[in-house]
Design a protein around this nucleic acid. Structure first.
Length: 919
RNA sequence: GGGCGAUUAGCUCAGGGGUAGAGCGCCACGUUGACAUCGUGGAGGUCGGUGGUUCGAAACCACCAUCGCCCACCA
C-alpha cells in the first residue's frame, strides 16, 4: 500500500467494476427500499447542491442495500422546458439564427441533438460521485414511455373535468412569450414611482385623482373605484369620468377592495392588466380592454400615437401626455413589488389569454390528508407547515406554455374551434367521431415541465403497467430534496401519485438545506463563487479555476472582480480531496433544515481522515502479515483491549443505525469519525502493538490479536462504506485473503449486526485511559520529551487498582512510555502527582521536573477543584435541592463532593510537601 | 401583513432540564518501526437580551433584539 491515500488511483476503476457487475440493479421482492432521484435538467451540469443531495441518497441507498432489502435508486433527467429551450436558443443566437428560422420541428430536433451531447455529462458526474443508481433504468421525462404516461394522465384529468381550458388573466412573460405559473414569478421590492393623475368628471364639475404605479395601463381603464364608506367620495359614486387621452367615459364604482388610506383613495381599474382589477371587473361586470401585444407593446386597438410602443416607452409617453394636459398632479417615489419571470428576469404582465388549467381543489384534499394523518412524514417535521400553508390556498395550476420544447398538449381543434382531447389524433377521431374529412389541428402549446415531474415516482417505475418495480417500490421510501421545490414538485407529486398510482408517492420527505459558499452567499455563476464538485474531487489549478469562473458570464463586466476574489481565496487553486472526503464532508454538514456553508477547512479535515483510515489499515495489514490466523487457539481469550474495541464497535453500529433511521447523517458521520480516529487509531492500534511487537508474547495471543484487528477493521469498513464507498472498497478487498472472504465488493457485503456491549471491558479501559491520561498530562505540562521514559510510583491504591494495573502493566508501560511502574506505600516528597480517583500516580522529580512549575500546575488543579467543590456544596446546602431533586441526582452530587474534598485535601498535602522541599 | 428558522469557543457547527462539546485554527513539546494529511499536552465560552416555570435553565415558556428565508392582491 502507498504511504498516502491517493483517491484518483482507485475511484474510477472501482466504479466501472461495480456498474459492470450490476451491484446497483434494482432488487426484487416486497418491502423494497426506493428513492427516485429529483431529475436534474438534462442540459445542465451537477452543482454542489446536486452533489450534496446525491451523497445523501447514495448513502441511504447503499446502507439499505447492505442490509439486504431489495433496493432501487432510480436515476433520470428532466427535459426542463423553458431552461433547455433558452439554452438552445442562445446557441442559435450565437450562430446568428433564431428558433423561427429552423421552424418548430427543426428546432425540436436541434434540442434533441443537444440533449444527446449534453446528457452524458450528468451521468458522468454522478459516476464520479459514486452514485449507486440503477443505470439500466435511466429515464428521461420525454422518453416515449413517460410521454405516453403524460398523455394518459392529461386525457383522464380532462375527461374527469379536472383539466379545463379557460380565458383569464395569467402571468405572461413578454420576453419568452409564454404563460407562467404563479410559482415561476418572483416578486421583489424595486424602486418606482406613484404617479398621481387627474381624471376629469364627465359632468365637468371638477376631477378626482388616482394614484398608479403603471401609468401605461390607463389606456385600458374601465372604471375608477373608491371605498364604499369613504366620505370624501360618496357623492361621486355612480358618476362617470372621461378618461384622458382615450376619451372613454367610465364609471366611478364602490368596492371594499380599495384602501382609503393609500394614495388618494381612488383606484383606476384595468381589469385586463391587473389581478385585483380583474376581480373587481368580474364583480362589477366591467369591460376588459387589452392594451398590450404578446411582447408587451401597445396594441393596434389603442390610440395611434401609442401603437407599437414598448410598455416602458408608452409609460413615459402617457405621463408626458398627462403633464401636457395639466392633469399630472405630482409624482411620489414609491417602492413596489415587481413581478419577474424566474427564467427570463423580465417583468411579467398579467395578460388575458386562453390557457389550460388543472383544477387542483379535488386533488389537493387527499394530498393534505396524507400528510395530516402521517402517511407522508416530513423530516424535519416543521416543513409540513409550509406544505399545508400552500396547499390550503391553492389556485388552479396553469399548465400550458407557449414553448416548443416539451410535451405537446394532446388536444385538437377543428375549424369551428371545438376541442377534442385524446392520446393522439386517431384516438381523438375515434373517440369523438370526427370524420377524416374534418381537418384537425393540434394545440401548439406544451405542458409545464412540472406536470411530467409530478408523475415521476410512478412513471419511472412503469405505471400504468403492473410492473414488478411498481410492486416492489411504490410507494417509494423517501424523497430527498430541497425546500425550494416543495411547492413546485413535492406537493404536485403527492396529488398526482394519490390520484393515479393509488397511494402516496413516498412515505417520507427529507428536506435538506441549501449549499452556500463560505460567506453564506448563495452560489451562482454571476457571483463567481460556484464550486464544481468534480474540482473538489480532482483538484484544479488556479488559472483553470479563474477561467472557469469568468467565461460564459451573462454579465462579462463582473469578470475582473470575480477573478480577483478567486485569486484571493484560492491562491494555490484547489487541491485534490477525493470523492470520499467530499461525501463525508457533505454528510457531516447535513444537519436538520438549515443552510450549509461549505467550508474548505472541513473537506481538508476529512481528506486527512481518509488518510488516517488508510494508514491504520496499512498498519493492520503490515503488522499482521506474517501471522497465520489459523493458529488462534480454540481456548483463546481475548485481551481487555480486544474486548473493549469490539464493544465500542457495537456501540458504533448501534449509533449509526439510530442516526441513519432519523436522517441524521451528520451525527452518523461524527460517530464514525470519533470511533475510527479516537478509539480505533488512537487507542486500539497502539494497544495492539503491545502484543504484536512484543517478542515475548505467545504466538496464540499474537494470532488472536491479529484476528481481532482485522475483524474490527473489516467491520469498520463496512460501517463506513455507505458514506465512503471507494476507500472502503479498496481496503476491504485487500482484507479478503486474510479473512478468507469471497466477496467481490463491499457494495453487497452484509451490514454489521450489533451485539451486546461488554461493560466490564469498557469500564476497565476507561480506567486505563484515565491513568495513562494522568501520566501524559504530567509529561505534557512538564515538557518531558515524548521519547524519554519516566519512572512512575503508585500509592493509595485499592485492590481493584492493583488488579487492573497488573492486568495491563505492559500496556501502561508502552502507552505512557514508562521506565518503571511500582507500587509503593509512601512516595518520596519530590514528585509530580496526578490523581486518578483515589489512586496517586507519582513521577519522581530527579532531573525531570521543575518544582516551581509543578507547584503552579497543582495550584491550577486545586483552584479548579475548589471551584467545583463550592458549586457542588452550594447545591447540597440548598434544602430544596436535597428534598426535591431525584435521589440519584442528590447521591451523585454527594459522591462528587466527596471526591472533590478528597482530591482537594491531597492536592493541598502535595503542595505543602513541595513548599517544604523548596525551603 | 402572516409563517418559519438562526443567534453556543477565533471560524464552521453539533448538543440538550443535572458541572459546556467536535472539527478547523491557535500555543507548547515531539523525526518511537501506520500516518507530519501525524502524535501528546494545553489555552479559549457569564450558550443574543430580559422576565417566567423549576430544587436546578444554555436547554422549556413569554417577550425583545439582530440576521436570514418563505408566503401574501395594497393601486
Amino acid at each position: 500500500m502507498q504511504k498516502t491515500f491517493e483517491p484518483q488511483a482507485i475511484e474510477q476503476a472501482h466504479y466501472e467494476r461495480w456498474e459492470q457487475a450490476g451491484y446497483f440493479a434494482a432488487g426484487e421482492g416486497q418491502d423494497g427500499f426506493c428513492i427516485v432521484i429529483p431529475p436534474p435538467n438534462v442540459t445542465g451540469t451537477l452543482h454542489m447542491g446536486h452533489a450534496f443531495q446525491d451523497t445523501i441518497m447514495d448513502t441511504l441507498t447503499r446502507y439499505h442495500r447492505m442490509r439486504g432489502v431489495p433496493t432501487l435508486w432510480q436515476p433520470g433527467t428532466d427535459h426542463a422546458g423553458i431552461a433547455t429551450q433558452m439554452v438552445v436558443e442562445r446557441q442559435l443566437n450565437a450562430e446568428g439564427q433564431t428558433r423561427h428560422d429552423l421552424g418548430r420541428d427543426g428546432f425540436v430536433d436541434r434540442v434533441w441533438q443537444w440533449k444527446e451531447t449534453s446528457g452524458g455529462k450528468i451521468s458522468g458526474q454522478m459516476r464520479r460521485l459514486g452514485a449507486s443508481v440503477d443505470w439500466s433504468r435511466d429515464r428521461f421525462t420525454m422518453d416515449e414511455g413517460l410521454s405516453e404516461v403524460v398523455r394518459d394522465v392529461f386525457v383522464q384529468l380532462y375527461d374527469e373535468g379536472l383539466i379545463y381550458r379557460g380565458k383569464r388573466l395569467v402571468n405572461w412573460d413578454p420576453v419568452l412569450r409564454t404563460a407562467l405559473s404563479d410559482l415561476e414569478v418572483l416578486s421583489d421590492d424595486e424602486a418606482g414611482h406613484l404617479w398621481h393623475f387627474r381624471y376629469p368628471l364627465t359632468d365637468g364639475r371638477g376631477h378626482l385623482t388616482v394614484a398608479t404605479t403603471r401609468p401605461e395601463t390607463m389606456l385600458g381603464d374601465t372604471a375608477v373605484a373608491v371605498h364604499p364608506n369613504d366620505e370624501r367620495y360618496q357623492h361621486l359614486i355612480g358618476k362617470t369620468i372621461e378618461l384622458p387621452i382615450v376619451g372613454r367615459e367610465i364609471p366611478i364604482i364602490a368596492d371594499d377592495y380599495v384602501d382609503p388610506e393609500f394614495g388618494t383613495g381612488c383606484v383606476k381599474i384595468t381589469p385586463a392588466h391587473d389581478f385585483n382589477d380583474y376581480e373587481i371587473g368580474q364583480r362589477h361586470n366591467l369591460e376588459m380592454i387589452n392594451v398590450l401585444t404578446d411582447d408587451a407593446r401597445i396594441n393596434d386597438e389603442m390610440p395611434t400615437a401609442y401603437r407599437g410602443l414598448d410598455r416602458f416607452d408608452a409609460r413615459k409617453r402617457v405621463v408626458q401626455a398627462f403633464e401636457d394636459l395639466g392633469l399630472l398632479e405630482h409624482i411620489d417615489d414609491h417602492t413596489l413589488k415587481v413581478p419577474r419571470g424566474d427564467r427570463s428576469g423580465s417583468v411579467v404582465e398579467p395578460y388575458l389569454t386562453d390557457q389550460w388549467y388543472v383544477r387542483v381543489g379535488p386533488l389537493a384534499k387527499p394530498a393534505i390528508e396524507a400528510v395530516e394523518d402521517g402517511r407522508i412524514r416530513f423530516v424535519p417535521e416543521n416543513w409540513s407547515k409550509t406544505y399545508f400553508n400552500w396547499m390550503n390556498s391553492l389556485e388552479d395550476w396553469c399548465i400550458s406554455r407557449q414553448l416548443w420544447w416539451g410535451h405537446r398538449i394532446p388536444a385538437w381543434y377543428d375549424d369551428a374551434g371545438n376541442i377534442f382531447v385524446g392520446k393522439d389524433e386517431d384516438e381523438v377521431r375515434r373517440k369523438h367521431g370526427v370524420e377524416a374529412s374534418v381537418a384537425l389541428r393540434q394545440d401548439d402549446d406544451v405542458l409545464d415541465t412540472w406536470f411530467s415531474s409530478a408523475l415521476w415516482p410512478f412513471s419511472t417505475l412503469g405505471w400504468p403497467e403492473k410492473t414488478p418495480a411498481m410492486a416492489s417500490f411504490y410507494p417509494t421510501s423517501v424523497l430527498v430534496t430541497g425546500f425550494d421545490i416543495i411547492f413546485f414538485w413535492v406537493a404536485r407529486m403527492v396529488m398526482m401519485g394519490m390520484k393515479f398510482a393509488g397511494d402516496v408517492p413516498f412515505r417520507e420527505v427529507y428536506i435538506h438545506g441549501l449549499i452556500r459558499d463560505q460567506d453564506g452567499q448563495k452560489m451562482s455563476k454571476s457571483k463567481g463563487n460556484v464550486l464544481d464538485p468534480i474540482d473538489l474531487i480532482d483538484g484544479i489549478d488556479l488559472e483553470s479555476l479563474v477561467a472557469k469562473r469568468t467565461t460564459g458570464l451573462m454579465q462579462p463586466h463582473l469578470a475582473p472582480k470575480i477573478e480577483k476574489a478567486t485569486r484571493r481565496q484560492f491562491p494555490d487553486g484547489i487541491p485534490e480531496f477525493g470523492t470520499d472526503a467530499l461525501r463525508f464532508t457533505f454528510a457531516s454538514l447535513a444537519t436538520t433544515g438549515r443552510d450549509i456553508r461549505f467550508d474548505l477547512g472541513r473537506i481538508e479535515g476529512y481528506r486527512n481522515f481518509c488518510n488516517k483510515l488508510w494508514n491504520a489499515s496499512r498498519f493492520t495489514l503490515q503488522a499482521t502479515q506474517e501471522i497465520d490466523l489459523d493458529t488462534v487457539p480454540e481456548s483463546y481469550e481475548p485481551s481487555l483491549p480486544e474486548r473493549w474495541i469490539r464493544s465500542r464497535l457495537n456501540a458504533l453500529v448501534d449509533e449509526v443505525d439510530r442516526q441513519f433511521a432519523r436522517y441524521r447523517l451528520d451525527l452518523a458521520a461524527q460517530a464514525m469519525y470519533e470511533f475510527t480516529w479516537h478509539e480505533f487509531c488512537d487507542w486500539f492500534v497502539e494497544l495492539a502493538k503491545s502484543t504484536l511487537y512484543d517478542d515475548d508474547a505467545a504466538a496464540g495471543d499474537k494470532a488472536g490479536m491479529a484476528k481481532t484487528l482485522l475483524d474490527v477493521l473489516d467491520t469498520l469498513l463496512r460501517v463506513l462504506h455507505p458514506l465512503m464507498p471507494f476507500i472502503t472498497e479498496e481496503i476491504g478487498l485487500q482484507l479478503n485473503d486474510r479473512l478468507q472472504l469471497e466477496r467481490e465488493s463491499l457494495c453487497t457485503a452484509d451490514w454489521p449486526k450489533s451485539c451486546a456491549r461488554d461493560t466490564g471491558a469498557e469500564s476497565d479501559m476507561t480506567w486505563l485511559q484515565g491513568v495513562v491520561g494522568g501520566i501524559r498530562q504530567i509529561r505534557g505540562e512538564m515538557d518531558i520529551a515524548p521519547g524519554r521514559a519516566v519512572p512512575v510510583l503508585l500509592s493509595d491504591y485499592s485492590a481493584e487498582d492493583k488488579t487492573r494495573v497488573e492486568a495491563a502493566r505492559s500496556l501502561l508501560m508502552r502507552l505512557a512510555n514508562l521506565q518503571s511502574l511500582e507500587f509503593v506505600d509512601t512516595t518520596p516528597t519530590a514528585c509530580a502527582v496526578a490523581l486518578h480517583s483515589n489512586l496517586r500516580i507519582s513521577v519522581p522529580m530527579a532531573g525531570l521536573i521543575d518544582i516551581a512549575k509543578e507547584q503552579e500546575r497543582l495550584q491550577k488543579q486545586r483552584d479548579k477543584t475548589a471551584q467545583d467543590l463550592a458549586k457542588t456544596e452550594g447545591k447540597l446546602n440548598n434544602k430544596n435541592f436535597v428534598d426535591r431533586a431525584p435521589e440519584a441526582v442528590v447521591a451523585q452530587e454527594r459522591r462528587r463532593a466527596d471526591e472533590h474534598r478528597s482530591t482537594l485535601a491531597r492536592l493541598d498535602e502535595q503542595l505543602q510537601e513541595l513548599a517544604s522541599l523548596k525551603d
